[in-house]
Design a protein around this nucleic acid. Structure first.
Lengths: 168, 168
DNA sequence: TTGTCTGCAAACACTTTGCACTTTT
DNA sequence: AAAAGTGCAAAGTGTTTGCAGACAA
């Protein structure tokens, strides 16, 4: 649960803590370091799982400080964190889901359509395949997203958390 | 531009035309073959590119028959076509985009973030990789979606259609 | 002080739903 | 005639925006 789980994993250069990097980003753009932005970054960096905006908002409201930030501010700040390279955004079942992207190695996901769980994995082969495909189409690849959907072991063994949703 | 472009390409068994398959699907579920459903399927099968609901609705309104179907009916029917296995749905930049899935080989996409163009490709390696990853996580894969985002050749050569949008 | 940020409420885009009426079967 | 489908208008989502007051620099 430490703030910086394993900074040697990533291949990107990671010299600053996420918070520091965010402040640097804000300053570079003439933006200000406000109480709200600080709280949001702190809170997000305290957890390392995937989350969505409403979830984050709800969690912030449970902190001792009470209503730490309004809904618009949460959305605005999440967007800034994505721009700053701290978070990665993906769209699943209609809403945006965020995950850490700073100091974390590139990876993709297995998505359980029954319980919405995301399981991470990474594959060298995939990267190679991606670059080969892009090259053959004279396409400049900037990134990719692979989601393998299906049913996880837990859900197959009965203990499903229910709640249905359509395929990605 | 024939109705059935190449039915020998797919690996799935394809004995019926899309329309016939849809009617079969409807009957099997006690649903009815209405003028609207017929028009929508016909129209969709006449084109072979990707499209979204609003686009389809607009096109239907330009047909000689005029307003062929209402917005709710278009949405409802698209859902049925997905259930029937005729269409495949994906979410790009906030809205649902559909593509043909009946008699078409499995494939993935290169997505140009500059002009929103989708380029199709398919890779045997990817399928193998997918199954290997799923197996190693005791996950039952039902499908996958890979989108490689970047900039296409046209956009790099200047003739961009502009209109920005965030990464998938 | 100056200009950015916040929070509120309202607006948004896309999609779905309740319901009375129309159609297929 | 019975059951399912349609269209309208209205309600939902999740997310964004205009703006007056609050606050960092």
């Amino acid at each position: 649960m430490s703030l910086a789980p394993d900074f040697s994993l990533g291949s990107v250069d990671v010299a600053l803590t996420p918070s520091a990097r965010f402040e640097e980003f804000l300053q570079a753009r003439g933006k200000r370091i406000t109480r709200q932005r600080r709280m949001i970054v702190e809170h997000v960096c305290g957890r390392h799982e995937h989350f969505d905006a409403e979830q984050l908002l709800a969690e912030l409201r449970q902190t001792p400080e009470g209503a730490a930030a309004s809904r618009p501010t949460v959305y605005r700040t999440l967007g800034e964190m994505v721009d700053a390279g701290l978070l990665r955004k993906m769209v699943l079942g209609g809403r945006a889901v965020y995950e850490h992207d700073y100091g974390y190695p590139q990876h993709d996901h297995l998505y359980c359509t029954s319980c919405q769980k995301l399981i991470e994995f990474s594959s060298e082969d995939l990267i190679r395949m991606r670059d080969a495909v892009a090259a053959s189409h004279q396409f400049r690849a900037q990134g990719h997203r692979l989601i393998i959907s299906g049913i996880c072991l837990d859900c197959r063994s009965g203990r499903s958390k229910s709640r249905h949703q359509d395929r990605v």
